[in-house]
């Protein structure tokens, strides 16, 4: 479902060219649970951003469900992100002035879903994260674990096929981190394609397929571990 072939991504830093991704080829099947590990600067976040259509490769082809998505316009890429890709960030990225429910509602608003249909979907997404009683709370009134669960509810409310998690436990204590990982794995076993970027080996090793990156290249790939 995700096919990357010979992806390069160069950044200009001063007068030096940095190869953040240096010829990455990768195929990820639907429903896979995959972790990308490596030291900081190895290109794992760049890879995640590329797969999530937040960034465009300098060269190479990225096909999503057989279609070349690197050639899409901004508007088309935005719609793909909105409909098919969910993001979970290390820093949660909740809008502080909006309540938990309003944060979860954002992707639906951007998609132009009518208000009558939104309430129910937001409620369901929050209930799935056991946060029904926190829907009227602002992010500042929630614990770290609760905030990340709101973020996951927001990432899944559009029922995407791919969930991208960038260091999802990085800002959490051990126990909350464990909860979040369990929730992500639950989603994975329901069929979502889960891609976790982490430098935490303990979390990375739980994935059925593990990638290691170094200097913009794939160092090792434990192979397609279809469930």
């Amino acid at each position: 479902m995700i096919e990357l072939s010979d992806i390069h991504r160069d950044f200009q830093v001063g007068d030096q060219k940095v190869h953040a991704l240096d010829g990455v080829s990768l195929t990820i099947g639907a429903g896979e649970y995959l972790s990308i590990m490596g030291p900081s600067g190895s290109g794992k976040s760049t890879l995640l951003n590329l797969i999530g259509l937040l960034d465009r490769p300098t060269s190479g082809v990225y096909r999503l469900d057989g279609q070349d998505v690197t050639a899409l316009s901004d508007r088309q890429q935005a719609e793909v992100r909105n409909q098919r890709i969910g993001f979970v960030f290390q820093a949660f990225h909740l809008v502080p002035r909006l309540t938990a429910a309003e944060n979860v509602e954002l992707p639906l608003i951007l998609a132009g879903v009518p208000p009558v249909q939104r309430g129910q979907r937001v409620e369901q997404a929050l209930a799935a994260m056991s946060l029904s009683d926190r829907s009227r709370h602002k992010p500042e009134q929630l614990s770290g674990g609760q905030r990340q669960r709101v973020a996951i509810a927001r990432a899944t409310v559009m029922q995407p096929t791919v969930l991208m998690a960038d260091e999802p436990t990085g800002n959490l204590d051990h126990k909350s981190g464990q909860d979040v990982v369990r929730i992500l794995e639950q989603l994975s076993s329901n069929g979502i394609t889960l891609i976790v970027v982490t430098h935490d080996g303990e979390i990375g090793r739980r994935a059925r397929r593990q990638l290691h990156m170094l200097d913009g290249r794939l160092e090792s790939d434990s192979g397609t571990g279809n469930a």
């Binding site: 999530g52 937040l54 901004d74 508007r75 935005a78 719609e79 992100r81 909105n82 409909q83 993001f87 960030f89 820093a91 990225h93 809008v95 954002l106 992707p107 951007l110 998609a111 927001r154 559009m158």
Partner: peptide, 16 residues
Amino acid sequence: SSEIGLLRALGARQSQ
């Protein structure tokens, strides 16, 4: 900035 980045990740177009 980070809110703008978030909106873009959630599927907001530049025009939005």
